[in-house]
């Protein structure tokens, strides 16, 4: 009796997952416009400092490693969720959230440092494009972190079932996607910005 119902339910969850994937793909297009803007404006520094003068590569490498590791630990949480191991899922989700929070803290520290040094977004077109691109990524990280905390809370309240398993899968897509976007920010804004 329940079988056709379950199948329907699974089908609609699969559709939800596909819909979320399409959203993530369009988010890539949003980031592409910001990358293009940054690439066009990166030399328009209004006689102010350029990427070479402002960024420290060691600092950004640490940020990258934090985010990359959080992407990996999220994968571990997902594996335990599929094994119905609620405790380990919550543990790895918490570690992921801590790594994400550390990344966010470093990013905010960098922003604060730039602004107090007088290199805010209003200083030049280069800085406007930089803050828009990296800030949009940071905003996504904040949303992802809220989503992780909500997931932890919901898991603590209830049990692992097909529904929140599916939500965790979608959150996984989102979190890995943010890591991929960061790789491109790391490569283009920081590595090429400092080395070129």
């Amino acid at each position: 009796m329940t079988k056709p119902h379950t199948t329907n339910h699974e089908q609609s969850l699969d559709k939800a997952k596909f819909g979320f994937w399409v959203y993530v793909m369009t988010d890539c297009v949003l980031f592409a416009t910001l990358f293009a803007t940054y690439a066009v404006l990166r030399n328009n520094t209004a006689e102010g400092p350029s990427a070479k003068d402002l960024f420290s590569l060691n600092f950004v490498l640490l940020e990258t490693m934090l985010l990359l590791t959080s992407s990996f630990t999220y994968g571990l949480a997902l594996i335990f969720a599929k094994q119905n191991n609620k405790k380990m899922t919550i543990n790895w989700l918490t570690i992921t959230a801590m790594l994400g929070l550390s990344f966010l803290a470093m990013e905010l520290y960098e922003f604060n440092h730039l602004i107090t040094e007088g290199h805010a977004w209003s200083a030049s077109a280069f800085l406007s494009a930089y803050f828009t691109l990296v800030g949009t990524h940071g905003l996504h990280i904040i949303i992802g972190l809220i989503w992780i905390f909500v997931s932890i809370f919901r898991l603590k309240q209830g049990t692992l079932n097909i529904k929140n398993n599916n939500s965790l899968t979608m959150l996984g897509i989102f979190w890995h996607f943010l890591d991929i976007i960061w790789i491109f920010i790391f490569s283009f804004v920081y590595l090429i910005g400092v080395a070129l």
Binding site: M25, C28, V29, A32, T33, A36, T37, A39
Partner: peptide, 14 residues
Amino acid sequence: FMIMVVSILVVGSL
């Protein structure tokens, strides 16, 4: 499809 749109957008803008 995303890769195609992104390529057109970035390369075209530059």
